[in-house]
Amino acid sequence: MSEQSKKPNDKSRRDFLQNIGMAGVGTLLGGAAVWAGFNYDSKKTAKQRIKVLTAENKLVEIEKDAILDIEKSPAQQLTYLQQRGRDGLEGKRFVMVIDLSKCQNARKCMQACQEAHHLRPEQHHINVLKMQETATTQPYYMPKPCQHCDNPPCTAVCPVDATFKRQDGIVLIDNERCIGCRFCMAACPYSARLFHWQEPLFSEQDKDLVYDVEQNVPQRRGTISKCLFSADKLREGKQPSCVSACPNGVYYFGDENEDVVTNGTTKESFRFRKLLADNGGYTLMPELGTKPRVYYLPPKGKTSPFQEKDKEEAAEHFHG
């Protein structure tokens, strides 16, 4: 009797131990994930720097990784460009200031942008909108690039880290990783993103190019594209395409850490915070808490009138 009654006990003890074992494995797996999260280490290895002679006979010092030698396979080049694109520029915090009082809807920014990023005419990284808040207030033109938010709702929802924010504040998209779920488009309150529903404009002629995250070229069908602040140009010390294409001095671009922004048209520089303070600078929809890196100066004292033909379209939005 005692023998028999003991047996199930043994069995259940064995089972119990096995359960513990399996639970252990589960805990270990989960624990590993937690540990990886906790143990994130921001140590950065110092990058090796070397001196090279440029085509203009200038001796410049660059990071050793930056040499894209011909022998590197396209896959290696891609990995390098992806890594570079994710790292961003150290010590920078890029900001854009858009002076609405100067915008006359010349659309040179849109054009330059579409050329730089190989987009179709209906695809906009930057879009000049005709705005009007209420029936009694004045309509105005508002260029709207990606706001490169410091609390970006788009990157929050990305399931695969295809869109990400870099240390210099720029929000980029890696279209080699994007799965095309379009959650970021739904999450963006500024409608700043576009999706390649069909083959991109230059997909045939761009097909041998190595993909550069910082330019998002070649564009790719079934993935997202968006304003990049021309990250490839910023690396060279140049301003974004839209900024330098503007004929009317609408854009200022600079580094918040330097507290200076430079006008893309006149190349005149101003103290960033003072420019905002003196002109009543603001951000779009601050109530959403997205903390944009694009600032607007109000359309006060516009130098040119809002065009008659655009009035109807501007009014559409507030009439509802």
Binding site: K92, G237, K238, Q239, F253, G254, D255, E258, V260, V261, T262, K267, E268, S269, F270, R271
Partner: peptide
């Protein structure tokens, strides 16, 4: 001027 990333600040 003071040199800045995109231009000179006077």
């Amino acid at each position: 001027f003071v040199k800045r990333y995109f231009g000179n600040f006077q």
